[in-house]
Design a protein around this nucleic acid. Structure first.
Length: 580
DNA sequence: TTTAGGG
DNA sequence: CCCTAAA
């Protein structure tokens, strides 16, 4: 069962425990078996219908957050009223009205019977707005359920698994429904009831009777709820860096979380209606970095057209390109296509879509370094091995190349002489005052990175000299002992792990095998590639021999003359010079 | 932890 | 460069 975890919307616990599990049959048969799950699902439904309205209202109420308590109380109570107002809209098929009735009851009960939930409810409303409005404006018809699924896919389009979940749970709903209709399933309400009580101890089962009509309608509605819950669940996962493999950690998401509006408003800068401004800041949750690995994020806001406000949160390890795509998708979904999204960082265009946002900041700093005039001691960028005041590249005669690729695709100066002069004269670190903000941001960034469990390492292309060193080491040591290679040739290069070296060798071999026309990136001298091929062949053969001798040894109990294990261990074996 | 290989 | 099964 996938849905076992708590459904937490990131504000206060909504605590939908085991949401889809309580068999509907239990709830159906006894009028008093009104479950909390149902209430919450209904709340979603209702929220969906309220979304537009609420969005409008929150737009005009700048002081709303000052009186959260009141709002919490009142919203739930007003739900019914608001919904009725909304009923004026043409979209209210028969089945929807039924569901609407339920939703209203649920909402009022949430407020009256459970004070805690009322507050949560308000928050849920905020978060659910975008999703619910999009997915549920049109009532529960099968086609619309499909649309719903599609949107779920959009939300989670990083991996496209949302559809799977939707279908999956739809299936479960079907099953539940079948069970419900099963005549033998109508045996004893008493038993079911006690089971139900076990499932949801927290809530009294003595609910006022609720008249619920057509089963079919109910089925449609519940299946919808399931999907909403699914999406909200997904949302929650990404929000808290939940490590569901399907979604990975770089997943992006966005929402209309009005709760963040005021906080964001203070810090954001909006250059123009199409620009995106990055303003790194702490998460709303404060700096509990220890628990929330995702508590730091680069947040963006967009001011655009008729969209009141669109908030997008992406991991700082998201690439510029993925950010643009996310924005594009979000906006496109709302107002249609034909939009170009650009990224401005400190008023500089960042054009390279493959850079991560962190790298973009580093890049900015590098720019500061080469072009600035002020001199201050040391600035820690927070980016490992990117300390700006020192050219630290081991095993490389050309440290300047270390940073060069990062800035190669931007508007910032990439003049080699500038970079080199920086590299060769690592004395003062000039930092224009105007970019203090960026540096501050990165300083915060460092704090975050320490707590970030798996920060993607920035891309560091191998310099020619590094390749040379690697080839040399592999010639001597072989292809199966990358730790030794690392120790021998890259001992002081902290940013090169043995996995890096192994990977680089892999690509080198590949590069050497393909035709020069197919090669990309800064060319590796053919001489080195030739050596790569020779060494690769030699050590492949060597390894084969070793395997063979191993078997031979096993069979005959005597070492074979091809056994070079000892030589390997001492590192004396190497590609014979003659073959090179 | 290190290797080996797929993603 | 990441992830991870295996060793």
């Amino acid at each position: 069962m996938v849905f076992k975890k708590r459904l937490d919307y990131g504000f206060n616990a909504f605590n939908v425990h085991d949401v889809p599990r309580a068999p509907r049959s239990m709830r159906r048969r006894s009028q008093s078996k009104w479950t909390i799950e149902e209430s919450q699902f209904c709340a979603f439904e209702m929220l969906a219908s309220l979304a537009g309205k609420l969005l409008q209202e929150s737009e005009s109420s700048a002081s709303s957050n000052a009186s959260e308590g009141h709002e919490c109380d009142s919203i739930g109570k007003n739900c019914f009223k608001q919904e009725i107002q909304y009923e004026d809209k043409p979209l209210k098929p028969k089945c929807f009205e039924q569901g609407r009735c339920e939703a209203s009851v649920a909402a009022s009960e949430l407020t009256t019977e459970n004070g805690d939930d009322s507050k949560d409810f308000r928050c849920a409303e905020n978060n659910a707005i975008l999703e619910c409005t999009l997915t549920m404006t049109d009532p529960a018809c099968s086609e619309e359920i499909n649309g719903d699924l599609k949107y779920g896919g959009f939300l989670g389009n990083v991996d496209g698994h949302s559809n799977y979940f939707g279908e999956s749970y739809n299936g479960k709903t079907e099953n539940a429904f079948k069970q419900e209709r099963d005549p033998t399933g109508s045996r004893d309400d008493v038993e079911n009831f006690s089971r139900f009580k076990r499932l949801s101890k927290r809530f009294k089962a003595s609910r006022p009777p609720t008249r619920i009509g057509d089963r079919r309608i109910r089925k449609l509605l519940t299946s919808k709820y399931w999907k909403v819950a699914t999406k909200l669940k997904d949302f929650e996962h990404s929000r808290f860096g939940g490590k569901r493999p399907l979604y990975r950690k770089r997943k992006t998401y966005y929402n209309y979380h009005r709760c963040q509006y005021d906080m964001l408003y203070k810090q954001r800068k909006i250059f123009d209606r199409k620009s995106i401004t990055s303003s790194p800041e702490k998460d709303m949750n404060g700096d509990k970095c220890s628990t929330a690995a995702m508590s730091y994020r680069v947040k963006f806001s967009i001011k655009s057209f008729r969209i009141p406000e669109l908030y997008i949160e992406v991991s700082e390890t998201a690439t510029v390109g993925s950010l643009k795509r996310t924005v594009m998708e979000a906006v496109t979904a709302l107002i249609g296509g034909g939009i170009h999204v650009g990224l401005l960082l400190q008023e500089k265009k960042v054009r390279d879509d493959s850079r991560t946002l962190s790298q973009a900041v580093v890049l900015l700093i590098n720019y500061c370094l080469v072009s600035g005039s002020l001199a201050i001691p040391v600035v820690n960028t927070g980016i490992p091995n990117c300390t700006p005041n020192l050219p630290l590249l081991t095993n490389s005669e050309n440290p300047a190349t270390d940073h060069e690729p990062v800035s190669s695709k931007t508007d910032m100066p990439t003049d080699q002489s500038l970079l080199e002069s920086r590299a060769l004269v690592p004395v003062p670190v000039p930092v224009p005052a105007t970019n203090v903000e960026a540096l501050t941001a990165v300083a915060v960034n460092q704090k975050f990175q320490k707590s970030e469990l798996a920060q993607r390492r920035i891309w560091r292309p191998f310099s020619i000299s590094e390749v040379e060193a690697l080839v040399q080491a592999v010639e001597e040591i072989g292809t199966g002992r990358w730790r030794d290679v690392k120790l021998r040739a890259f001992e002081s290069a902290d940013h090169r792990t043995y996995v890096n070296l192994k990977d680089k060798w892999k690509t080198l071999v590949h590069t050497a095998k393909i035709s020069p026309q197919q090669r990309r990136g800064d060319p590796v001298p053919q001489e080195l590639l030739d050596r790569v091929l020779v060494a690769h062949a030699y050590w492949a053969q060597h390894q084969a021999k070793k395997q063979e001798s191993k078997h031979h040894h096993h069979r005959h109990g005597t070492p074979s003359i091809t056994d070079t294990t000892e030589a390997d261990r001492k590192g004396v074996a190497r590609v014979p010079i003659g073959t090179m």
